[in-house]
Amino acid sequence: MSNITDNYPLSEKRPDRLTTPTGASWKDIDLQSVLDGTLSMSDLRIAPETLELQAQIAESAGRSQLADNLRRAAELVRVPESKILEVYQALRPGRSTPGELESLADELESQYRAGRCARFLREAAQAYDVP
């Protein structure tokens, strides 16, 4: 394989590599599966592996910050929406002490293996903490 961007768009060129976090594959998702009720919104989700592929594509196009974002996103695939909203709220101005952000970071790291997100939170805590 010459270049990772040759695989882009994945939906056209590599649908075989696309699965959902629930284990469904690209070809499983059709109108019939919706009508049968065998498919739910939670099946229509991107997999961490796919986000990693997209991160590599972004990186090879020279977009390191976008790649970082997509890698944080890959970690958040495993994190439930309620927890995501909780973290978001905690990051908003004046919502939490550095210690609270620190413990959320620990939780992301230990429970969801979200190391990059945890680091991002710690960097925020540090930045917020400067008087």
């Binding site: 989700r45 944080r72 991002f120």
Partner: peptide
């Protein structure tokens, strides 16, 4: 918001495609 909260939100959206 702060730049960090917005950035986190962006990752949240991306995590759902």
């Amino acid at each position: 918001d702060t730049p960090w909260s917005k950035a986190f939100l962006a990752s949240a959206y991306a995590s759902r495609g």
